[in-house]
């Protein structure tokens, strides 16, 4: 009789112990954040200052100047006059429909996120490529970062740091950093073994091998990772707006809750336009870095 009961209903822990378990973990974390929240927040202060400064710079500079600077970057990155003209129309459209300030906020947070993910992700990728043990340890963490629903890790981040730019920035980085780490690791591991042996034979040390052979040859792959990272960061804009990040995500959120179709569509299109510009620029920049693969028929 007991046996049948065992097979039909899962032998779960009692509701009382489960409640106690959740309560104690929550309590411990709350104590932790009360104790160390300020200290941890202070760590991110420089990032916050920079982010605020950058956003203000974009907001307060005359818009034609900002457009000119952005188009300059687009042209330098892509060397394509068509993309530059297309970007000009996209920015004019955004400004004309009253989305200029939100767009600048989004550009600033995406810009800072990209810089941070590159600055943090590439060294981690290099570390992973150099040691199978590091790779075995980091890979599952990346899997969790990519598959854990973002709302779930938003809870502890908000508990710890409250609502605002920094938690939003962290949420975006957690979601967007895995591709650049994975593809840096892959790119370095894919470097031809014979070429590496040649570098060894000429007495190159580890750093010389890394900076003169491995990284340059892995660069196209790394750039594919950076491109993915930027795209994923843009995709997080709406979710980040839920915890107080200013930008194009907020009007989209507002549109969802109030069923403002046109408002949602316009801001959504602005995000798409930014995504296309970022994508094309970073892709063609990455492509230009592999000129040596152009082939013999030049």
């Amino acid at each position: 009789m007991n046996l049948i009961e065992f097979f039909t209903s899962f032998p779960e822990m009692s509701a009382e112990s489960l409640r106690l378990f959740k309560k104690s973990v929550d309590g411990a974390y709350r104590n932790f954040s009360a104790k160390y929240g300020d200290a941890i927040e202070a760590v991110f202060d420089p990032v916050l200052y920079f982010l605020v400064w950058f956003e203000k710079l974009l907001h307060n500079s005359p818009w034609p100047l900002v457009i000119f600077a952005l188009l300059g970057l687009v042209y330098l990155g892509s060397r394509s006059i068509y993309l530059t003209i297309g970007s000009l129309f996209a920015f004019l459209f955004i400004g004309y429909f009253g989305m200029w300030d939100d767009t600048m906020s989004t550009v600033s947070i995406i810009g800072v996120c990209t810089a941070l993910t590159i600055g943090f992700g590439i060294p981690v990728g290099i570390l992973m490529s150099g040691s199978d043990r590091a790779r075995a340890m980091i890979t599952p963490i990346l899997d969790v970062m990519q598959t854990m629903p973002s709302f779930v890790y938003l809870i502890p981040v908000v508990m710890l740091l409250g609502i605002g730019k920094i938690p939003g920035l962290l949420a975006v980085i957690i979601y967007a950093i895995p591709p650049v780490i994975r593809l840096t690791d892959l790119g370095i591991r894919e470097v031809n073994k014979e070429v590496l042996e040649a570098a060894d034979a000429f007495g190159a040390n580890r750093m010389q091998k890394l900076f003169r052979v491995q990284l340059p040859l892995a660069l196209p792959t790394i750039f594919a990772g950076i491109n993915q990272t930027i795209m994923m960061a843009l995709a997080m804009v709406v979710i980040a707006s839920m915890i107080g990040v200013k930008g194009l995500g907020q009007p989209v959120l507002k549109a969802i809750t109030n069923q403002y179709f046109t408002m949602g569509l316009l801001n959504g299109l602005a995000i798409v336009a930014l995504a296309i510009i970022f994508d094309r620029v970073s892709q063609s920049y990455g492509k230009r870095m592999q000129q040596h693969r152009a082939g013999a028929n030049e």
């Binding site: 031809n192 014979e194 070429v195 042996e197 040649a198 034979a201 000429f202 040859l217 040596h292």
Partner: peptide, 17 residues
Amino acid sequence: RRNKTGMVFQRFALFPH
């Protein structure tokens, strides 16, 4: 390796970049 030996490889192993 830097001073005493030079090596030439079967499949060239030149630096493509």
